[in-house]
């Protein structure tokens, strides 16, 4: 049975990189949008060779660290 995979990497500053596999067309972006909504502003979208099979997207966090 086909699988859909998303690999999400969060670095020490909170920047998120997400890679998808097993999605068709724009569905990967929709899925990432729902997962990463409000967690950061997307600043880079890379369409890989197998665009309809695999996409990579980078998100930077829009929140700044501050003490309350």
């Amino acid at each position: 049975m086909p699988e859909q995979r998303i690999t999400i990497t969060i670095d020490e500053k909170g920047q998120i990189t997400a890679k998808t596999a097993g999605f068709k067309g724009e569905a990967c972006l929709d899925e990432l949008q729902s997962l990463l909504e409000d967690l950061g502003t997307i600043h880079e979208v890379k369409k890989t060779d197998a665009y309809y099979q695999q996409n990579a997207i980078k998100v930077t966090q829009k929140q700044t660290l501050g003490r309350t």
């Binding site: 699988e3 859909q4 998303i6 690999t7 999400i8 990497t9 670095d11 020490e12 997962l35």
Partner: peptide
């Protein structure tokens, strides 16, 4: 955990 980074591997089976 990969060094200072956290990696989440999400897998879902489609039917």
């Amino acid at each position: 955990r990969k060094g200072n980074k956290i990696q989440l591997q999400l897998v879902r089976t489609t039917y």
